[in-house]
């Protein structure tokens, strides 16, 4: 240890906004393919159990199901607007809009909970007796339904936590008009989680 006077503690890599965004996009690809694997399974099983999937779908509540895409859609609008607000330097409004996003995410989760709860009341929940008696094919439909929407719900939770952290840093001023990449990245994640729902929704609820 010869000298500590060197400025070795200051990392020479400067803030690279594009690099961070590229990194985020690459991460989104992994998320796409994570769900992609499940869509492959869905495609194969739907092919093998064509009629049973129709019957299963008919048992899902379209109205309850239709509220969620609208809720999510609106939440993506608030996220997009919060980025605009921050870019224009209005961090208060940006935080407000993130709060709205979180409220909408909460609505989504509540709706999901309600939907699963009614299934549970009917004994149609993994592990329950009625669920175990489901005929071949239809059982697979509900397996996939619970697995895919469940995984999606986990992603909503992760995305919400991410947005909360971001809102916190906007408040602190670390994320600001000059450096808004982290908010943009949070937004990208949020949009992606919604894009997945765009596909999940018709594939499960609308195959009448």
């Amino acid at each position: 240890m010869t000298s500590t006077t060197l400025s070795h503690d200051v990392h020479p890599v400067h803030f690279d906004a594009y690099g961070k965004k590229l990194g985020m996009w690459i991460f989104l690809f992994t998320e796409v393919l994570l769900f992609g694997g499940l869509f492959l399974v869905y495609a194969a099983y739907r092919f093998l159990n064509h009629d049973a999937f129709h019957e299963g779908s008919a048992e899902l509540n379209v109205v309850v199901g239709a509220i969620n895409p609208v809720v999510l859609l609106t939440s993506r609008l608030t996220v997009a607007m919060s980025i605009t607000a921050l870019q224009r330097g209005d961090s208060k409004r940006a935080i407000n809009l993130i709060m709205w996003t979180l409220i909408l995410a909460g609505t989504f989760m509540f709706n999901k909970y309600y939907e699963w709860y009614t299934k549970w009341e009917h004994g149609l929940f993994p592990g329950m007796d009625h669920y175990k008696e489901l005929p071949a094919g239809k059982a697979q439909f509900f397996n996939l339904y619970f697995f895919m929407t469940g995984l999606h719900a986990i992603h909503i939770i992760i995305g919400s936590i991410l947005l909360m952290v971001i809102a916190f840093y906007i408040k602190k001023g670390t994320i600001n008009q000059q450096r808004y990449t982290y908010l943009e990245n949070g937004g990208l994640y949020w949009h992606l989680v919604d894009v997945i729902w765009i596909y999940l929704f018709p594939l499960f609820y609308l195959i009448i």
Partner: peptide
């Protein structure tokens, strides 16, 4: 530094929505 400087207006976002 290639920070994306394009700002989407509120109105436009609402339109897409």
């Amino acid at each position: 530094d290639t920070q994306n400087t394009h700002v989407t207006g509120y109105r436009f976002s609402i339109l897409i929505w």
